[in-house]
């Protein structure tokens, strides 16, 4: 197995920072200067075909970790490697290229990940265009393939995305993320805004895609149900640090860290 994404000792700070900031076991928010340490010495890697989950409460740093993986954010220290290439702090054309070809992201809300004024097909092909595709028929073919694969009605492919329901828009996001067959998908709370029946169908879809394509996934969620269904391995984050890690089933059935225990026992069922 080859490593798709490696995050090595990454720290991210929001704020100016000071000398007394972030002692290893202190609070994430510095009492002196008020800076917030969203990630502190975060290390993990995602191998090909691997589905890694990150759970934690709001403000635990999981979205920041994902933003580093998506090259949105440059960490204060540490490295991010994608397909073996050190991409820490990369920008400009190379970052755009990597985003088009090596990464696919599904955001929490469709408005973050899509241009709702474009057609569903347009949203899907935009990534192929970014990757340099210039054949109209090939774009149409691949877009309809993806529309069908994500169980969207093919006749709606050329409809403007804002006319879609929330669940359908999330599917468009998935189709868009998959457009260039990236080796890894980043999923940021992919089902949070959806009602439960639609959630289940989207999760089924993601699982089926994962099984069929063996695409690696990094799933960020506060919903343990989502994580249980998708992720093979799990990181539990709290105050910017990983407090526990392991195989999802093992970790959720036998949580060791008091915070993980709290998280598991707080789950509605």
């Amino acid at each position: 197995m080859t490593s798709i994404l490696e995050v090595v000792d990454v720290s991210v700070r929001y704020g100016v920072g000071c000398e007394r900031c972030a002692p290893a076991d202190g609070p994430a928010r510095c009492p002196v200067c008020g800076s917030v340490w969203a990630c502190r010495g975060l290390s993990f890697d995602v191998d090909s075909g691997d589905v890694m989950g990150i759970v934690g409460e709001s403000g635990s740093g999981k979205s920041t970790a994902l933003a580093c993986a998506n090259l949105d954010l440059v960490p204060l220290s540490g490295r991010v490697r994608l397909l073996g290439e050190d991409v820490t702090g990369i920008g400009g054309a190379r970052r755009r290229e990597l985003r088009a070809e090596a990464l696919g992201i599904v955001c929490q809300t469709p408005a973050q990940g899509l241009d709702l004024d474009l057609t569903a097909g347009g949203n899907v092909v935009s990534r192929m265009l970014a990757a340099g595709a210039r054949g109209y028929e090939a774009l149409r073919r691949r877009a309809s393939e993806l529309v069908q694969a994500t169980e969207l009605p093919l006749e709606r492919m050329d409809a403007v995305t804002s006319t879609f329901s929330g669940g359908m828009q999330q599917r468009v996001q998935v189709a868009r993320a998959l457009a260039t067959r990236p080796p890894i998908l980043l999923l940021d709370e992919p089902t949070s805004g959806l009602d439960v029946s639609v959630q289940v169908r989207l999760l089924d879809l993601l699982r089926r895609i994962q099984l069929e394509t063996q695409v690696a996934m990094l799933v960020v969620s506060h919903d343990l149900g989502v994580i249980r269904m998708l992720a093979d391995r799990l990181l539990v984050m709290r105050q910017g640090r990983i407090v526990e890690r392991g195989l999802t089933d093992q970790l959720l059935n036998d949580p060791r860290h008091p915070y993980t225990q709290l998280l598991v026992s707080s789950q509605l069922s």
């Binding site: 400009g92 474009l118 057609t119 935009s126 265009l129 970014a130 210039r134």
Partner: peptide, 13 residues
Amino acid sequence: ERDYAPVWLYLYE
């Protein structure tokens, strides 16, 4: 950055 993907997207749409 010679990033003309948005124009191509406009042409596609």
